[in-house]
Design a binder for these strands. Structure first.
Lengths: 251, 251
DNA sequence: CGAATTCTTTGCCCGCGCGCAAAGAATACA
DNA sequence: TGTATTCTTTGCGCGCGGGCAAAGAATTCG
């Protein structure tokens, strides 16, 4: 299975950094999954078609169920992408950091947002109206092609998570969730990998398909075993190998 | 939420029809999700870039884990798209009938097939090599755009199935599964909607995330209640309204 | 046509993990 | 600094549904 190679190479902007107008935005665009492979002139064209919007921590950037009118790419700050099920469960789909995007479907007519994006901290995002994005895709087929690639990867990940929910016990799923988070939002420290977003037991439960009580019991056990170090809304992975062992355990 | 409008309008070719070279193939291409919106000349171009392959019932058209080298579109016959999880569970992702396709990822370099496609009955499919499809997408951005749209819809459905697995009891999920199958593979008869593929209890279990024993108990109960009529590897939905009620029940 | 195979049915036991309760602890705010 | 709020922890009971067993029934094949 192939992963989105650009993720490993993207420049990581510290969450602690105060939120200011950042140069080079074109660099973020060039490194992003959707706009990679475009020439500098094409990137300039893309940049000029967007507006920059700012969001305060806690603000919704898009709302599930609303008509999907715009495509967003984070320039700084972080967001949490969530869905609410008909019976009121919240599912955490993923976190987003600079370079990550959502709302590709705005280029398709008549779609609603299938998830909500909530700014975790003060953030800025480039925003393209859907028709504008569609025109860019018509002009530069590479954007549509990259979009297809991104949605393919999203689908593959959703298939994997479905399979995990179907076949794996809770502990295994929580281990997998922490590994994904380490990979996507992790920052290496002397002690291990710090997951660099606020991550409550509730958040981790929503991400791995369980409840905060199960997550609490599991993290307590792993902390005692030295696998993780935790605090309030904070998880640091001390032994990624242990998590890999747990994640791969066969029943 | 928007559905793939072309599904409702696609011409349905009877499974019972013996498998012969069918005219009009261009019509199937024009109606398909991937190639809709192309001009007649463009469709001709697309048609000429493909080869026609024949598969006997039971034969694998693509295999999960193999490098994704080709894109397939069924011209006649039916296929079953499945995944096997690391611990040996089989998941039925969906059925495919003429006009349906799989393997878009072959246009993306370095991907493996995430599922296997097995011919249910003697079938024929148009096959495009990945590089050829990628070139077609570069030449006609509408194909890449349609591809992005198709993968978006796939992703949305996968998200919904994840949510269902997370929050709904087995009976509700089996009802939803039958509704989807009625919609995708159903044929109206006097008695109700016949799901027009062989559908064992095991198949329905793999499609709805449960076991054949649970499905058996549920179908037996629904048959007694007049909701369905069943036979061996055969389900006819007598009361779609009843299934809708069951599917929508809140805990 | 009979044997073999595969699918379906029904009973029943067990365990995972959800969910509720009841705290304690950490953080935010006035 | 103290109060209020929110998050975390731990105990425990219950139920959904998985899975095994043991058949019966339908279909396939020789």
């Amino acid at each position: 299975m192939v992963h989105d190679g650009s993720s490993a190479e993207e420049t990581i902007y510290r969450r602690a950094t105060s939120c200011v107008m950042i140069d080079p935005i074109l660099h973020i665009l060039a490194d992003s999954s959707v706009f990679q492979g475009l020439s500098e002139r094409e990137l300039q064209d893309v940049r000029e078609a967007a507006t920059m919007r700012r969001y305060v921590a806690g603000e919704l950037m898009v709302r599930q169920g609303d008509p999907a009118l715009a495509f967003h790419m984070l320039i700084c700050g972080h967001a949490k992408l969530v869905q609410v099920t008909p019976d009121g469960h919240q599912v955490l789909i993923r976190y987003a950091r600079p370079g990550h995007s959502f709302g590709l479907r705005s280029a398709l007519s008549g779609f609603e947002y299938s998830l909500s994006a909530e700014a975790i901290d003060d953030s800025r995002a480039l925003v393209w109206y859907g028709e504008v994005l569609a025109q860019l895709m018509e002009r530069y087929s590479r954007i549509a092609f990259n979009g297809m690639r991104m949605m393919t990867l999203r689908n593959v990940e959703m298939q994997l998570r479905y399979q995990e929910l179907l076949t794996e016990p809770v502990e295994q799923r929580v281990a997998q969730a922490l590994l994904r988070l380490s990979n996507d939002m992790g920052q290496k420290t002397k002690e291990g990998i710090l997951i660099d977003v606020p991550l409550s037991r509730e958040d981790l439960a929503e991400y791995s398909g369980t409840t905060l009580y199960s997550v609490s019991r599991i993290l307590r056990q792993w902390e005692n075993a030295g696998v993780v170090r935790t605090g309030r809304e904070r998880v640091l992975v001390r032994s990624q190998d242990s998590l890999l062992d747990i994640a791969a355990a066969t029943i």
